[in-house]
């Protein structure tokens, strides 16, 4: 009894430490954003929402945020068909060179971001499209695609192989089988993957940094640029907006497919 009790205490201590460490940055930023002073400090000096008002007024931050949303949308829209089809193919069919394809698809993920970022900077630079937003979206899609593929493969490999045969037996031709049976069955994976892709693209800093110019800075890059001049609490406020966006995505995920699917990646 005593043994199990001391075990409980040890476990809960670890849990508490982990929770504090994980949430501390968020709490600090959250607190700092509500400061009434002119410096980022924690605990905040007084309470106000004036920095939220300030970021509403700051057109450069607002525009950077909108650009980030556009980049994320491009990244997500591109990754859905590509990742879904690749994920289903890898899970379901005996694809030739399956191992090689898998490694190739995971490659962007294993190369240091700075490496792939420079690579893409050269490619897009040669194409003369740097400074536009869509190359940033494509780049985010390329480096994060493994997440999408993982999410889809996870729900596709759970598929009962007989489902499509059953649909065929019910009179469904191949396209209908895919649309009515396979696609809905992997939909939880697609939703999970899409939201992940969206959040990751929204947060992507390093690759964006290499691909944007003054006309096309995304929010993380904008924040980084601001830090280099003066650190004001509006950065904390915009960070909180960022966190809220991620929070909304996670909530959506939970509502739509349930977080347990995502966490177990079943």
């Amino acid at each position: 009894m005593i043994g199990s009790r001391s075990k409980t205490i040890v476990i809960w201590t670890f849990v508490a430490i982990a929770l504090i460490l994980l949430s501390a940055p968020t709490i600090v930023v959250l607190g700092a954003s509500f400061t009434a002073g002119n410096m980022i400090t924690f605990p905040p000096q007084g309470l106000s929402v004036k920095w939220y008002g300030a970021i509403l007024g700051a057109s450069d931050l607002r525009q950077a945020f909108i650009r980030s949303l556009i980049v994320s949308a491009i990244c997500t829209v591109v990754s859905i068909p590509v990742g879904t089809l690749a994920g289903i193919a890898l899970a379901k069919y005996k694809v030739r060179f399956e191992k090689a394809i898998q490694i190739y698809l995971l490659l962007p993920f294993t190369i240091p971001l700075i490496g792939s970022g420079i690579g893409m900077m050269l490619v897009f630079g040669n194409m003369g499209v740097l400074g536009q937003l869509w190359p940033v979206g494509i780049a985010c899609c390329v480096i994060n695609l493994p997440f999408m593929i993982w999410a889809v493969t996870a729900s596709a490999s759970n598929l009962n192989e007989d489902l499509e045969l059953a649909a065929a037996n019910c009179g469904a031709p191949p396209l209908q089988r895919f649309l009515y049976i396979t696609l809905p069955a992997v939909l939880p994976g697609v939703i999970t993957g899409s939201l992940l892709m969206f959040i990751l693209a929204l947060n992507e800093f390093l690759v964006s940094l290499l691909l944007v110019d003054a006309r096309s800075v995304t929010l993380p890059v904008q924040i980084y640029n601001s830090i280099r001049s003066i650190i004001t609490p509006d950065l904390a406020a915009i960070s909180v907006v960022f966190i809220v966006c991620a929070g909304i995505a996670i909530t959506l995920l939970d509502r739509l497919v349930g977080l347990d699917i995502f966490l177990k990646s079943k």
């Binding site: 045969l165 065929a168 009179g171």
Partner: peptide, 20 residues
């Protein structure tokens, strides 16, 4: 004749009901 053009009903071993 492909399976979807054969007018055959089938009950599968694991039933293969459409879960969604």
């Amino acid at each position: 004749v492909p399976p979807h053009k054969r007018v055959i009903g089938m009950v599968f071993q694991k039933l293969a009901l459409f879960p969604h």
